Simulated scan of single mutants.
Amino acid sequence: MIHAGPGQTRTGPVLICRGSVSRDCPHGPVPIDAGGCLVSPGLVDIHVHGALGHDLTEPDQAAWRRALEAHLHAGTTTVLATLASTGPAEMAAALATATGLIAGQQAPTLAGVHLEGPCLAPEQRGAHDSAHLRSASEVLRELTPLPEALRMVTLAPELPGADALISYLAGQGVRVSAGHSSATPEHLARARRLGLSHLAHLWSGQSALTRPALHRLPGLLEASLASTELTAEVIADGHHLPAALLTIALRCLGPDRLCLVSDATAGTGLAPGSAFRTGASTGRVHNGYAATDDHTSLCGSVTPLAVTVARMRELTGASVDDVVTMATATPARAVGLYPRKGSLLPGADGDVVLFGPDLSVRAVVLGGRPVTGVLPDGDR
């Protein structure tokens, strides 16, 4: 039982019985004094590629467990393992690794897989390896039958064959996200009707306003900000987006539709100068960020989700409740895990983060069991 004081993210005790939040417990719960900390649901990261030199496209279960444990110690108690574009065999092997870990209950924070690619627009590919981008029809064949662990796919909805892929995925209960895309508002509206419900990292890999003649034509970015139903992501690591853009995103979508994500790569927790792999691409760690070897594109982040919670508050002035919501309830809803994840409602998993007054992580609880240690964030 975790005791929280008034005025905090959670007021009053949080009772966890046999791994779940409960109204009562007949087993004599052990009290834990939060010591003036903010009590939050465990953080939910739906866009994370790895940590400590381990990329989640690796087919090695031990590598996955080390990366997931690193994020757990940093406050992330629920993860969608995000696979950057790679070859068909490598993608299938990584999906099989995730399925095995979940079936064997060997990775308690792993909630499924998020495929970021390989059905992406070449001109918006960012750090994705162009040699491993594939057509929607190829990806549809690769995902038939549907891999058990698959929960989300980010794709470019304007590409030929994307309609059939979106319909198939949405019909199977997989969340579909638009990203690394040059889609127009018309493309996005059609994809929304077919079941697309989410938008990957705003301002990163999105087409924007053009003026080919007299009239201005909005791109995917403007359509994203104007949307009234879609959820969307921002990477608030202090490097991807300045304060003004984060503020615009929050004002347009609000905390109930805007998700904080880390986009953390295998470079997370490594020293500046370290090289790492993400999908079929390589990146290098710099002072608080990662970039491609030619330094022409950011290559994910090296920042755990909890650090983006504090930075979102610093950069936008958003309330503590709002920034916590964007890292808990909102991403959990976006991928169909709420209220079991991202909440402290009765019946939710007993995942808790204790934040200090500066929103630094002081303690992590997973399924009612304390977790110790905090992952270095690279520049704080």
Rank of each mutant, 00 (worst) to 15 (best):
L260R: 04
D349L: 12
P331W: 14
G347K: 11
E314T: 05
L250H: 15
T282S: 13
R369L: 14
R313M: 08
H128N: 03
C17G: 07
T154M: 05
C259N: 05
E123D: 12
V39L: 12
G19T: 13
S182C: 10
G53N: 05
R190I: 00
T228H: 06
C252W: 08
A249S: 08
Q206V: 05
G347W: 01
A226G: 08
W203A: 02
G195M: 01
T278H: 09
P370L: 11
S227W: 01
L133Q: 09
A189E: 13
H295I: 07
L270W: 08
H3W: 09
V361R: 08
K341H: 15
Q172S: 12
G269E: 04
T330I: 13
V365N: 08
V174D: 00
A236H: 01
V44I: 10
L230K: 01
A271V: 15
P304E: 00
A191C: 00
T278Q: 14
P218H: 09
R175M: 05
L366Y: 07
G35W: 12
I102Y: 03
T282H: 15
L110A: 05
L169E: 05
P346W: 04
A156W: 15
T265G: 13
P212T: 14
T77D: 09
Q172I: 11
P88Y: 02
L366V: 11
R369I: 12
V174Q: 00
V139F: 02
T86R: 07
R192F: 09
T292S: 11
H180N: 01
R66S: 00
Y168D: 06
H3I: 15
G267H: 12
G195V: 00
E142Q: 15
V79M: 12
V320L: 11
G373I: 13
A149L: 01
A327R: 10
S197E: 10
T210N: 06
G279L: 02
L202M: 11
M152F: 06
L345Y: 03
A290W: 09
S360G: 13
C25R: 11
S227D: 15
T328I: 09
A162H: 08
A183C: 00
A121T: 04
R65L: 02
P108L: 03
A348R: 04
D379M: 09
V39G: 13
L315E: 00
A310P: 03
P357D: 15
T11D: 14
E90C: 04
L159H: 14
H239F: 08
H128I: 01
V371N: 12
G373R: 08
R369N: 11
L150F: 07
H47P: 03
P31F: 06
D294F: 01
L246A: 03
R151G: 03
R277G: 10
V374Q: 11
L146R: 02
E123A: 15
P304M: 02
A149G: 04
T86W: 03
D45C: 09
L298S: 04
E229A: 11
G219P: 08
L202T: 08
G112K: 09
H132G: 04
A164L: 02
E69W: 07
G283H: 14
